[in-house]
Design a protein around this nucleic acid. Structure first.
Lengths: 178, 178
DNA sequence: GTATCTTTTCGCAGTTACTGCAATATTGCA
DNA sequence: TGCAATATTGCAGTAACTGCGAAAAGATAC
């Protein structure tokens, strides 16, 4: 991470990373599939947390509400690792390849979330609905994180995410009413 | 495209593409920035269409309704190029790198859409709201396209997209009511 | 038809991420 | 200590992409 911050993501080679970590360049790839994944190392654990949280929600709860509650809960973790998160996201937002990889990983999250929602609904809804909800939820998270970074982390993340979920649920069709 | 379909995306090299197109390998890169962009060649024009359509909507219209109307309109174009679209999306959904590139390009769309929405709102809303709407709209499009492909293009695309926008606007908070 | 300028095409050499494979080192355990 | 599983490594190779400068093609003026 320090190397990325000093020389930029593109300006840092695998060779340099390996040297800094005291391993052979070849060994790097037994820890990370791509260079981008170094910046996004926390992603894999994050998905498990979200799925666990989602599994803890009562079956009776509406899907969107369950998603909202789960993500707000996980966002509290984000706050705990605040400084690290800021470093990672700063690098990410400065580099298109890292952001692209982030989106790709989130596509995996979408698959997993849609799957859980479909199983939860148990035939009550179609797969399109599950997909849509999962995809929209991740849109909330991305928008929140972006805003959080751009505004210098003023508003706490859980608040932002809660707000975004709320807006999508209530405010879209008739904004003039709000 | 024929090469991709025969040998797969990864199994096709720039050299082969260049040979098929009767150009030097080096020249390929003056037409496409990456190999992935061959499959997504229609993306650049598509954004302009969407922005044009969005610019044509009345200022009084609620942002979400304007987005919905614009995308439904552009989806009609999709139907016109139906077979070509199916070929491209089939390749895309079979290859993670192409899908990642697609998401990256859509991130550019999101920027542009959020920008237009912010300017449209003229201070009535914050940037977070614009982002969120743009991001959610693209989530609708992706979910619709995916469903359209998986179900063998049974339902027309404009119908699917219209439906997704409608669901996000109305159905999220209180699905038990529906 | 020729000369001049612009644009496109091209070849070449180089960088870098990433892969498969087989050898070597390390570790955990009986 | 000996053995088996696992981690680390080196090497050779592939393929996407880049910068640069030369050559080719095309347009324009006279």
């Amino acid at each position: 991470m320090a190397l990325f911050e000093e020389h930029g993501f593109d300006g840092t080679t695998i060779e340099q990373i390996a040297a800094a970590a005291d391993i052979a360049p070849r060994t790097f790839f037994s820890y990370f599939p791509t260079k981008e994944d170094v910046v996004l190392a926390d992603y894999s654990g994050r998905l498990e947390r979200i799925l666990a949280e989602l599994g803890r929600r009562p079956e009776s709860e509406a899907p969107w509400d369950a998603l909202q509650a789960s993500f707000v809960e996980v966002a509290a973790d984000y706050e705990a690792a605040r400084d690290d998160l800021i470093r990672r996201f700063t690098i990410m937002s400065a580099n298109a390849a890292v952001y692209a990889r982030s989106l790709q990983l989130q596509a995996g999250w979408e698959d997993a979330l849609a799957d859980v929602l479909s199983r939860r609904a148990n035939g009550t809804t179609d797969d399109l609905e599950s997909r849509l909800l999962a995809s929209a939820a991740l849109a909330c998270v991305r928008s929140s994180l972006r805003h959080w970074l751009l505004t210098g982390h003023a508003t706490p993340l859980p608040t932002l995410i809660d707000d975004c979920f709320g807006r999508l649920a209530d405010g879209l069709a008739h904004q003039d009413r709000a």
